[in-house]
Amino acid sequence: MAAGESNISSHIQHHLTNAKMCTVDGSVAFNKACSEAGFWVLHIDSLAWSIGLGILFLWLFRIAAVKASRDQLAVPGKFQCFVELLVEFVDSNVKSTFYGNSKLIAPLALTIFVWVFLMNLMDLVPVDVLPALAGWIGFTFFGVESQNVYMKIVPTTDINTTAALAMGVFVLMIGYSIKIKGVVGFIKELTLHPFHAKNVVVQALLVPFNLLLEVLALITKPFSLALRLYGNLYAGEMIFILIGIIGLLQLPLHFIWAVFHILVIVLQAFVFMMLTIVYLSMASADNH
């Protein structure tokens, strides 16, 4: 049935499209009007959900922090114990991997872990609920056809979110490399390894190869970070959407995939955090 198939594919397409915002001819435009805007588009659903979840994370942890600093030796409540458990967990991971002395790494790792986890967690909300709600709101209050209201609630299934995280880590990698080894040391690291020769001429010939290899090694790191998280979550979301269109049989399947996905979302958050620590540790290690 051609109509059914196109219905299904448009349903999937609808689920996989971000809510867009851009300016067209000096005025704000949304969604399909932005198809010509190219780079200059904001995915407002990704931004809203990720920033909202980030604020939720910081708000909750700030409450625990305020309580903790009010009376450091008071018996902590359950919530505060949980928060401190997470902090302790991240701290021990950082301490066992990152040997430098940095006030930034541990809070960075905690932010990445909890924030990415919360963003991934949105994947467990049944796929049709929030888009349908958004469509209803759009239709009822703004008179927009619900087919034209987009709502992608998992920010980590948007490459922009994962790439932004990876870029942040990449900037810190460069920053740490330069801070620890100096500009000259960093350039030396990029050009004099892995192939090294005593003869100056041979060494000069080897520099382009070294540069190619090292730069490639350097930039694959943020790419792998961004694409790993994006790929895992995008695939998971895709499966949820596909399960969602098969009718009543979806219930057990959805349950099984959701249970499996609980593992994936925690694991991906943890992997992102650990790789961030490892990359920054490598960047600040002066062992070449």
């Binding site: 931004l47 990720s50 920033i51 980030g54 994370f57 910081l58 942890f61 700030r62 625990a64 922090a65 305020v66 903790a68 600093s69 450091q72 902590p76 928060v83 401190e84 902090v87 302790e88 701290d91 006030k103 930034l104 541990a106 809070p107 960075l108 905690l110 932010t111 924030w115 932004a164 995280l165 942040g168």
Partner: peptide, 21 residues
């Protein structure tokens, strides 16, 4: 957003919790 969150976490969340722990 990422940068702001990390800075906020570094300034106002991590130190008090770590001190208390």
């Amino acid at each position: 957003a990422f940068a702001v969150f990390v800075v906020f976490c570094m300034k106002f969340v991590w130190p008090p919790l770590m001190d208390a722990i």
